[in-house]
Computed example of a mutant assay.
Amino acid sequence: MIRMLLASMLAALFAISSAAADTQDVYTIPNLEVDETAPTLIQAREQAMASARLAGARKLIDKITLYEDRIAAGGIPIDGELANRLSAAVDVQEETAGAGRYKGILRVVYNPRMVRAHLDGLKVPYVDTQAPLSLMVPLAASADLEEAWHEAMGPADPGALAPYVTSNLTGYTSYSDWYALSPEAGSLRARRAILAELIGREGTWRVSVSIVTTAGTEVVGTTAPASTLEDAVAATVGLLEENWKRASIIRGGDRTQAKATVRYTSLAEWNTLRGALARSPLVSDFRTTAVARDGAVVTFAYLGDPQRLQNDLLQRGVALGDEPRAGWVLRSAVSAAGVP
């Protein structure tokens, strides 16, 4: 029992550190292109850093809030002074400097507490918790086009609100279900899959997007026309992030206290279940009150109604059920579907 308790404590620390890493990914805005000239190289570099902080801050606010909420607040103006206050660090991805000119690609990391405090002060709702990791499955009408679409997607996008790892296998279709997708998804630690079917032609690409989980397939929608494959990727990511924000942002309401039994078959599964709860934007004050070799009792508070909580957890590979004697029971929906 003592060994199990120590393992549980380590699992809790791992879940907390993983959630913190997710937050850092959300608050990091990469690939900010800058090109500044000034009387001296030092001045040009300072201007470039300031330009990146400002552009990144605007992208971050758009990333974690909804358009209608920004409009309802009268807009969220961001100037250089505010961008500097919200930022924590600027990293150089690429740079070319000389003769009073600084050109490069920068990455800016923002301070979560400062950003949250600013949005809370404006009473603008936001979500900075990532959706569960997804297996991205690029689909297209021909093998050559699918290969180009796959390449445009890139291997992964860990910093998105809806992060993904791209599938390395072929043979999937728009009808592929979780049973077909779960072996690869499980090997990449993804808890759901995204079918991204490219349609149209050069200059007017559109993407039909669906999310596949143990519960079935949910059609998210189709992106607006994009002129290039790279733009189509950005539109796909934007559509998924918009879908996640609408599912996760809650405007007010009381938190409901809950107690549940968690059932698992291994320490790894217990750690996965804890991590899913820790990452849910609906859950807070999560505590373990009892733990055994194959089960635990936990308490937590949640926002919204039970159905919304159930849907959110299922996206993360966790099944929430109500049993006559035990009450709420949490178990791995992924393992139940035959995925390790």
Rank of each mutant, 00 (worst) to 15 (best):
L6S: 14
L13W: 10
I16E: 01
A19N: 08
A20D: 10
A21N: 05
P30S: 10
P39A: 12
T40K: 09
M49R: 11
M49A: 12
K63V: 05
K63L: 08
Y67R: 15
E68W: 08
A72K: 09
A73T: 10
G75A: 01
D79C: 10
A83Y: 00
A83V: 02
D91C: 10
V92E: 06
A97G: 13
A99Y: 09
K123F: 04
P125Q: 00
Y126K: 03
Q130T: 08
P132T: 03
L139G: 05
A140G: 05
A152H: 09
G154N: 00
G159F: 05
A160R: 03
S167I: 01
N168T: 15
T170G: 04
T173A: 03
T173F: 02
W178K: 10
S182N: 10
S187W: 07
L188F: 01
R191W: 04
I194W: 13
I199D: 07
T204P: 06
V209N: 02
S210L: 05
A215P: 04
E218T: 00
V219P: 02
A226L: 04
A226N: 05
A226P: 03
T236P: 06
T236D: 10
L240Y: 04
N243W: 03
K245M: 02
R246F: 06
T261H: 09
Y264K: 01
A290N: 14
A292I: 11
R293H: 13
V298F: 02
A301P: 04
L303S: 11
Q310C: 01
Q310L: 02
L314E: 14
Q315N: 15
R316E: 12
V318Y: 10
L320A: 03
A326F: 12
G327M: 07
W328A: 15
S332C: 12
A337S: 15
G338V: 03
P340I: 12
P340V: 13
